[in-house]
Design a protein around this nucleic acid. Structure first.
Lengths: 159, 159
DNA sequence: TATTGTTATACTCTATAACTATA
DNA sequence: TATAGTTATAGAGTATAACAATA
């Protein structure tokens, strides 16, 4: 009867080969969490993504933002339009190249961004329960994986 | 070289407090990977998501699929329409409740699904390099986190 | 009355292609 | 010519509300 491995979720000890599947499962399942979190700030997932990537300390070119969001530049125009219309960010001309527009985070945007990032960074209890040593070892491994998979969107830690 | 926005990427050892941020970073950054992987099979991210959730061994109600995808049922209609028009899945009437439609994965859909899942499960080199013991310990921790965050979409491992 | 799935609607995200203003 | 950003367009995901068939 236990032919179907999918159901009857087993709370028993996971095996070594479960690690990567679990990591994928975690990654794919966090979309809903992110959408919900952003919605609390009246942001769509992509708007939140953009705001998270932008650096309050250093304006970033539209171009660069598009690259970090792995989507087309034409797409970013609309997303930036909405953030700008809410006064969260502002387009700035570039000194060197007049074609380039830099995106600055406004005070209002910085406040909202910090709240969003703070909420993002609250770890679940299962993580809090880990010893510092365990977390450090895990962090080392994850850092390698993120590096290998080209993950890091280069998010500024704070203001 | 300007690509990496300003941070002189620190290859130094991550700290304990970096673990959760790294995990979030990983999760949020895998969207592009998933989109690209699904695109190889001419699937959108959500179509791939649906196909991955569906169980070739046991038809699932539209309702249940919507819940697993954390999106509205009205949304699922269109996604299922596209998968069905490609002959990957089929709507089936339910014996008990004639309002309910179950989604069966066709042979063609099962084949494609298995390829997609197989590709999904190929771990990056950084994971392969870990010892079985390290992976087992990591899997235990992740299992707790996924359980706590309500992640697991209960994906059937195979056919 | 309540529920399942569909349709209608409106909005966002998405890439492609064409456009502009610069370079 | 080439590039940064915009606009136009078309397709897909999204939720809400209204609907039909069934419970």
């Amino acid at each position: 009867m236990r032919a179907k491995a999918g159901k009857n979720r087993k709370p028993s000890a996971p095996r070594a080969d479960d690690f990567w599947p679990l990591l994928v499962e975690f990654a794919l399942s966090q979309r809903a969490w992110w959408v919900g979190l952003c919605a609390e700030f009246d942001l769509t997932a992509m708007q939140g993504h953009a705001l998270r990537i932008l650096d309050p300390g250093r304006p970033v070119a539209m171009n660069t933002l598009a690259e970090a969001m792995t989507c087309d530049a034409s797409n970013v125009t609309g997303i930036v339009d909405k953030l700008e219309s809410r006064g969260l960010i502002a387009r700035q001309g570039s000194d060197g190249d007049r074609r380039v527009k830099h995106l600055a985070v406004t005070d209002k945007g910085r406040t909202l961004r910090e709240e969003l990032c703070a909420r993002t960074m609250v770890p679940p209890d299962a993580v809090k329960a880990l010893s510092a040593d365990a977390r450090r070892r895990l962090a080392e491994i994850l850092a390698k994986i993120v590096r290998e998979r080209g993950g890091a969107a280069d998010v500024p830690k704070s203001a």
